[in-house]
Design a binder for these strands. Sequence first.
DNA 1: CGGTCTGTTGAAATTGATCAATACCGGTGG
DNA 2: CCACCGGTATTGATCAATTTCAACAGACCG
Lengths: 266, 266
Amino acid sequence: MATNAEIGIALPDWRDRFQRKMQSIARLDVAEFDHLNVVNHTTRSLRHHESIAAMPRAMAVVSTGWCFRYRLLLDGRRAVFGFWMAGDLVNLSPMSPGRSHDLAAWGSTELIVIAEVDYRNLCDASPGLVAAIATNERLDALLLANQVLRLGRMTAYERMAHFILEHWERARFAGLTNDNDCPMPMTQDLMADALGLTNFHVSRTLSRMRSDKLIDVERHSIRLIDPDRMIALCDYESIYAVRNQGRSDRDPFPTRSTDAHAAGSP
Amino acid sequence: MATNAEIGIALPDWRDRFQRKMQSIARLDVAEFDHLNVVNHTTRSLRHHESIAAMPRAMAVVSTGWCFRYRLLLDGRRAVFGFWMAGDLVNLSPMSPGRSHDLAAWGSTELIVIAEVDYRNLCDASPGLVAAIATNERLDALLLANQVLRLGRMTAYERMAHFILEHWERARFAGLTNDNDCPMPMTQDLMADALGLTNFHVSRTLSRMRSDKLIDVERHSIRLIDPDRMIALCDYESIYAVRNQGRSDRDPFPTRSTDAHAAGSP
DNA sequence: CGGTCTGTTGAAATTGATCAATACCGGTGG
DNA sequence: CCACCGGTATTGATCAATTTCAACAGACCG
């Protein structure tokens, strides 16, 4: 298979994104990532809203675009559990015995799918990756816990702030931000289902935040005007700080070089 | 160290509970569990509300009693993420970089702690257990997702029903139930923090459920009078069905032999 | 340029929160 | 055995956040 580099394109390869992501959560020798160059995988292109069949013990790296996990209730209510962006590792194992859980693409999305055997081979070859992937699972659990925190004990305004901060932090570490500009492709409908609100209230809350000079909302991105005030108002705790050993606990958002936005838009 | 069997006590050992739990989520050869007899571990007794320090990559099996995970906000609001009961495997790795997450005992509780090295040895010795533990991690994630579903998109009444059903199903598989009687040691305050409600509203909701002839509430247990109606009203999906290969999808609560209640009460 | 998806805004309705008061229950000590 | 105590549960009245419903304005797309 030809890499982007071979055909002369400078855009980050999925391996670059994945490596960046993994290095942000674990101290990893660069050599570990050589294994990625030879790992067997298939590329899957998904259209907006297309869902991704579960594959036991298989993994996928989001190359471009976005995925989200959700569950429908009988009367159509939808709960959104989380989002995955470029560079993120998505566990493709079925979430629940039932059929109501789903993983779907948001916007046109490309996934690098690593099947069970190949994933196992990769793990055998690279114990460092195994550890990093385990840490990544802990991170996924933390994201779910944050979701519970927001939904269970925060007001709409706090929820929104906390959600945006978390999303921003993830996007920063994935190299998707541009200064305080952060891709935010979700519709307010989708955010509503992730925040446990109605789309109406999402709209109102966002515009209140705008008038409070906390954020600027654009087409498919959001700009944070006053992150510190936002962090304080919802008691946001970084999801990365300690994992990234060298850094202070109190600086949840280390500065990093920024690529151009690479979001697949719906 | 002397086992209960050696000193003539018939109560289930933590190994029995753990084995039962593991077998309910994965097809496992009984021989795999022999490794448990030689695994290095320490026993930790905890008092009500005592918290359990995080230990990276260590695990613990709940022997008796209950644990719960929570996070405090600055103003004292508390979000409860989940509960663990006898036989459950608890991941002791720190949940988040911050200090606000905590794992604590509910009632007097005994934990079998397996430190990092010993856990690693156990895994090396027993590949079957590794797979089962991975499945267990998926189950933990599903429980968190269920929590998100409840908090995000269900009414108080539905939340309560869904929560009770999930708790009941877990207790059944752990062998803690007696027919439709299920240990429920939590106070309404604690349930409130798990359900995103006030203790007042928990009280009201429970008494409405009682008058609707869905449940009976006793000292520290709850009795399900009409599980089917309850399952229907909140669209409950079993968390075990498919993992337990031999059974039908539509029977979320297979009958099992039942031990006596073994809950540690606060 | 029409159609669909998305976002905005206002008014009314409702769920669940807040506050206050009281009852209960299981211990503990006199 | 009783009195008392802290923690827990109940109940009623009021209040507020968020939902619901309805109507419309933009944006994007072929």
